[in-house]
Write a protein that binds this DNA or RNA. Structure first.
Lengths: 161, 161
DNA sequence: GGGAAATATCTGATGCGTCAGATTCTGTTG
DNA sequence: CAACAGAATCTGACGCATCAGATATTTCCC
């Protein structure tokens, strides 16, 4: 910080610094983790997100719209991402027996395997980059706080399209 | 599911859930804050990042390469983003007197104004979405922990290009 | 039952970031 | 001081997400 500054500038700097702290963490976290996954498994960050979403959903799979509603992509984007994931053998589209407009997307065995192994890598990276620098006594509470925030943020988020 | 795979399945779910918690927070944070800025000020998330970077740098401005080194964009991306920001009147490019290859980028008064007002909006949103759900007694320590993590993550990050 | 409104998915146009290579300048070195 | 390695920036090709609109199907209600 700059010790020679007017009160107004100091207040402004405080705003910017406080902000940068938070957004910087989020952005850097995403970059580090996304990059590692890409290099190791050849899949994009968004593909990984969708693998996790499908893994959590289990049988009988999810509709395209349900994936979009998880707020990582628009519906148009889901169509194209699933196209590529299908071509890569990670997921399969099937008719929805109850609605001829819809398709059900589910993990292939290969997709499930990648999801599990990528999760392990991510978790290791999270521990390494994010938990390790923290004092041991802080770690559990920090994780708990993150979970609280995660739920609150999800509820507050406007739809993506 | 048969009993042999049960333990493995549980471990796998645990991994996925733990991960989703952390990445979900980061991703959702970025989305919420980025979207609000875009709607209010008509600038992208990355433009906002660059406004902050330039605001922190002060006079005499930063080179294109220095902006890229802040790890939000590649050098090619910086060129194009600064093109647009210049067209929008947020920044100005000037010759670098000491190196005729380089340009120095600095905020225009308008860019400075947007940076300050956008920061205020962001800070308000951070408090609303991120701090408010937390117990009061946790807030300060949570912010402190975030700052620790931010620095650690920055040091560990590989270059962007 | 029949048609309007809603819903699910897909697609054309567009915007923007990345990558790799081109261009222009600097600094070193023989 | 010429030449060449290295650095700063810019640009063409490309990938991928978004937006808006098109198509197919279902639901609602008269």
């Amino acid at each position: 910080m700059d010790e020679i500054s007017t009160a107004g500038e100091a207040a402004r700097d405080e705003l910017i610094v406080s902000f940068g702290r938070l957004l910087g963490v989020a952005g850097r976290l995403g970059h580090i983790l996304g990059r590692a996954i890409e290099q190791e498994f050849g899949i994009s960050h968004l593909m990984y997100e969708v693998l996790l979403i499908l893994g959590r959903a289990g049988e009988p799979g999810l509709s395209m719209g349900a994936i979009a509603r998880e707020q990582v992509l628009t519906t148009g984007g889901v169509t194209r991402l699933i196209d590529r994931m299908e071509a890569a053998g990670l997921v399969a589209r099937a008719e929805d027996p109850g609605d001829r407009r819809g398709r059900l997307v589910r993990l292939t065995p290969r997709g499930d395997d990648v999801a599990v192994r990528a999760s392990r890598l991510h978790l290791a990276n999270i521990e390494r980059y994010f938990l390790e620098p923290l004092p041991v006594a802080h770690r559990q509470r920090f994780l708990d706080d993150l979970r609280i925030l995660s739920h609150a943020a999800r509820d507050a988020l406007p739809p993506l399209h």
